[in-house]
């Protein structure tokens, strides 16, 4: 199914119906009749998008920087966005794959429970995070961002893997409860603040909070397993043999909280 926005607008479009689950078994007319919000007005999908059936199972969209909640709660299938995507992309998704060829806005993969999100450029704030008041953020799944990511990446994250190939904003991994956050660029300030459990893996030296303490330098076997699994994905994550076989400095924290979190900094 091909969806191209009819108008370029700054008004947010809320379209949680754009998922393979909702589209499955529906004709173009039926898909066009699905409800969306254009600002605060209820409209139909056909009012906002030009919809064509290309005979493929994949949902392909043009650049949609103001369309929110694409792929929300999806359980299977694929969505490809040929440009930028709006807020809450893949929020609470449970399976399937979303590929964004441009940038994605805030809250992408928020509270997701499975599946994959791959962003070719930059991601906004609260990537894989928890909504305010929620107990936990991302819980299983994989997010790969080829560019930079904003603040509070992986906030309250519980399980799953986030890979950011560029830089991280501030407070990445804040209040983490589990899962793995890997960053190849520069990590921002207050990394891992209030983290209880979980692992952050870095390939550039961070400015660590004083509530993180140095433990040891070694080659962690679990990381070898995880990196090799990531190497098998088609996302071309820049994992080298050195990253797998090299040593990492392990820091434990945040000791102002439970203190069972860890930051690994690649050494050699």
């Amino acid at each position: 199914m091909l969806l191209n926005p009819l108008v370029k607008t700054a008004i947010p479009v809320t379209a949680p119906c754009i998922t393979p689950d909702w589209f499955s078994g529906k004709s173009v007319e039926e898909v066009g009749n699905l409800p969306v919000y254009y600002g605060n007005k209820e409209k139909r999908l056909r009012d906002v998008f030009d919809i064509k059936d290309d005979g493929k199972d994949i949902i392909t969209l043009g650049s949609v920087p103001t369309v929110k909640y694409i792929g929300k709660g999806m359980t299977a299938g694929s969505i490809v966005i040929k440009g930028d995507a709006g807020m809450h992309l893949g929020a609470e998704m449970k399976g399937g794959c979303i590929t964004v060829e441009g940038n994605v806005s805030d809250w992408a993969g928020a509270e997701m429970k499975g599946g994959e999100i791959v962003v070719a450029q930059n991601a906004g704030h609260c990537l894989g995070g928890a909504y305010r008041g929620s107990k936990s953020g991302m819980n299983k799944g994989l997010i790969v961002v080829k560019g930079n990511a904003g603040n509070e990446v992986g906030g309250l994250m519980k399980k799953g893997i986030i890979v950011v190939e560029g830089n991280l904003g501030d407070a990445a991994g804040c209040s983490m409860k589990g899962g793995t956050l890997i960053c190849y660029g520069h990590p921002g300030n207050r990394l891992g603040a209030l983290m209880q459990r979980g692992s952050i893996v870095l390939y550039e030296s961070p400015a660590l909070l004083p509530t993180f303490t140095y433990d040891a330098e070694y080659n962690p076997t679990w990381l070898r397993v995880f990196l090799r699994e990531l190497q098998k994905t088609p996302h071309r994550i820049p994992i080298t043999q050195n990253h797998i076989e090299g040593t990492y400095r392990r820091y434990n924290g945040d000791i102002s909280e439970l203190g069972k979190g860890e930051i690994f900094v690649f050494h050699e």
Binding site: K140, K159, W222
Partner: peptide, 8 residues
């Protein structure tokens, strides 16, 4: 001890 889980 620390638990780590790979994706399904």
């Amino acid at each position: 001890q620390i638990s780590k889980r790979l994706n399904p």
